[in-house]
Amino acid sequence: MSVAENLPEAPPQAAGDVILEVRDLTKHFHLGGGLFGGPPAVVKAVDGVSFSIRRGETLGLVGESGCGKTTTGRCILLLEQPTGGQVIFEGKDLTKLSPAEIRVVRRKIQVIFQDPYSSLNPRMTIGQMLDEPMAVHGIVPERRARQDRVRELLTVVGLLPSMASRYPHELSGGQRQRVGIARALATEPSLIICDEPVSALDVSIQAQIVNLLENLQEQFHLTYLFVAHDLSVVRHISDRVAVMYLGKVAEITDRTALYAEPLHPYTQALLSAVPIPDPEIESHRQRMVLGGEVPSALNPPSGCVFHPRCPIAIEDCKRIVPEVREVRPGHRVACIRV
């Protein structure tokens, strides 16, 4: 482990320093339309999302498929151009930067993808993959030093340095995900967007990767936006959690409060749907099963988007779009019934 310890340790940061602030982010996709089509349909994939992440913490972003959590992550990475709102990273609004400035910032915000099979270029060796970002950004200009650094990165993520000469198809899923993590670390980022980093892995490998992410966070003072649908894993790794539903934030607070006392009825339903691997507990557990399905983002319900499935909805919920408001210190909920 001597190699890993030689890596430069980032100085401890003052807690509370906001590294990323997302303000009223919206991303609309236009479907159809075009040259001869009719009026294009608009999907509001992300619709007025605001949150901030403090340096060194992990914000969990949970929700079901189509809730906009992945799109939110992609907007922060500028892989999608936001339709509106601001993404303020270390004091700079990313949505207003020039392409050249964006390329510089990208070094500092990295990403780990869900699928370890499609996130690595099959035609490049692991070594080339890790070498490239350091060369392009001039982080380690000298070729020999870069090779050392590649080996060091592989060791840091728990792989053998000799794997630098391998191609992705020669590695298992868990090993590939470690390569994906090493690639993200290569540019010495301060924020990493983890987009479902363990959900495509075998159960026995998931815990290895979660532990690795936690260890790396400590070692390099990383900040994570952890996008996932598995509430158990999110609880384990996150300091604060935001729950999204149909493009909007339903509830956001610190981990303890969210899991101990969820206030939004959607969060409550989500938590109660998570099965617990213990038949004894399961047989006594009271569950709140939501009726219906997530409505289409093409045609979201009026008022509160959750009202058609909400067990405590009242007439007003069909009309009033609930504001995200702070009901307790640090605990914000978008529900007029709370």
Binding site: L79, R106, V111, E132, H137, T187
Partner: peptide
């Protein structure tokens, strides 16, 4: 549409 192309974009490549 492959994530590795996204990764290349996210890495700031030309």
């Amino acid at each position: 549409e492959m994530p590795y192309v996204d990764a290349a974009r996210a890495a700031g490549y030309g």
